[in-house]
Design a protein around this nucleic acid. Structure first.
Lengths: 254, 254
DNA sequence: AGAATAGTGTCTGTCAGACATTATTAT
DNA sequence: ATAATAATGTCTGACAGACACTATTCT
């Protein structure tokens, strides 16, 4: 390295003390409504938090994360941390913002890169069985927002929430919370769990029968080409659907 | 600072050598079609680049940017750099991604934060008059994409382009390239300049008369409440419009 | 008159929104 | 039968897409 030229541009300014990632891991927790069987379960959007054991914010709950190494991208780091905390890989993980407010971390000048991950409950269960981690826990987002989270993690969580609420309606990320094959009611419920104000009276018809939404989902059929149905959550069996690749182009101009 | 605890968590790992910002500054350059007066001008999406004078990538063109100070956020830094390079402030500037590939900067471990800015041509002109900067220049984006830009700036530019193309159709950022009051044709042209494949036969009617798009723009009237028109670009005078605050909510589900 | 842009008329098929109704099946 | 969810029917007004047409004014 040409040391003098390096110094010329970088100068003798202070350099950051670290470039960590923080990961907002969302999952939807399904709880059967015990009273009656064959009824739709309750769904709850939850976020994974870790109780800090060391200074700073000792004892407070925080988003999982860790410092990026000089041999990896921040994206690699986020995936690595996600794997460490949840045991899962190959899930939707997405970078959404940087947090660089001076003083946000008492340890020094630390610029954090925030990711959000959407993890299917089924995948999380494996990990939760294997590790008895009292210091790693899922919280309903509404509850987490009221807690005194470490660092600026409340702001990060709020930002992440805003983003998945937006994306839930404008992309097909709902698929991340659903099994491969699902019913319309499940899809509707997942959307409503993330975006409570979502209400669409003619949802079934719109998602299945309108031309402009062709290609979002398709009916699942068995080997003989007959419609495949499920009566897991209902008396009357419901048609199963799966997501296709096509997502419609949105535009405000028509 | 508790030095030992700091070391415990941060460890003795290497820390980054800098957290700069790179800014993709877009503008739309308008050139009158000289042949005939009263005709729509040609518009061209251009990006501001700077010729590097020092190692590394000496002589190559690069995105403007600079190192973040420990007293500011990366957002502050981007705004500061934008002001330095263009003389403008108070324009649309937005963070969009982080670039952290090891080795992306020969000077060391440098994680860059990329912003995009949309600057109205009129605002840029002031600056361009005051500074004769042969090393600061606007390039049509198509041309810039073919150049050997410094660092990973080609990738950054491609990402930025993808984002403003998407946002041009889903938000009202077109306003950033337009004067306060504009005609439908101007708006249409700006959209097409950024998204060449955009074509909407009934654009006028959709943007002015459909209920679902109420509130995007409104007619401009003079003090007496009479419609205000402009014949700057046309024989027949055209109604002037301005953007309102409301942007429609988009959803793929209806 | 011709050129250049602005803006409206008209028609068909599809969709949105609101609401009611029927269908299916475990209990 | 009842409960619970799944799915369709029906109606009105609005919109999309396509294309032709009229309007205005500078040259």
């Amino acid at each position: 390295m040409k040391e003098n030229e390096f110094n010329y541009e970088v100068g003798n300014y202070r350099t950051p003390d670290g470039a960590p990632t923080d990961i907002v891991i969302f999952t939807i927790v399904t709880t059967e409504r015990s009273s009656l069987k064959k009824s739709l379960p309750k769904r709850d959007l939850q976020v994974l938090l870790i109780e800090r054991k060391v200074w700073p914010f000792e004892g407070a709950w925080a988003l999982p994360g860790g410092f990026t190494l000089d041999t990896e991208t921040v994206y690699d780091c986020a995936r690595r941390e996600l794997k460490e905390e949840t045991g899962v890989d190959d899930v939707h993980i997405e970078y959404f913002n940087v947090y660089s407010e001076p003083g946000r971390d008492p340890r020094g000048w630390i610029i954090s890169h925030a990711f959000l991950a959407l993890v299917n409950e089924q995948l999380l269960l494996k990990r939760r069985a294997s590790v008895d981690a009292a210091d790693v826990q899922l919280f309903p987002v509404e509850e987490a927002l009221k807690m005194n989270l470490a660092f600026d993690h409340r702001v990060i969580l709020e930002d992440a929430l805003r983003i998945i609420r937006d994306k839930m309606l404008t992309t097909t990320i709902a698929r991340e919370f659903l099994p491969e094959e699902f019913t319309i009611s499940e899809l509707y419920q997942v959307i409503q769990t993330v975006v409570p104000e979502f209400a669409e009276q003619n949802f079934t018809r719109k998602i299945t029968s309108t031309q402009s939404r062709q290609g979002i989902i398709e009916e699942v059929t068995d080997e003989d080409g007959r419609p495949k149905q499920s009566n897991l959550y209902s008396q009357r069996a419901a048609q199963l659907y799966r997501f296709r690749e096509l997502a419609p182009r949105l535009s405000i101009y028509g």
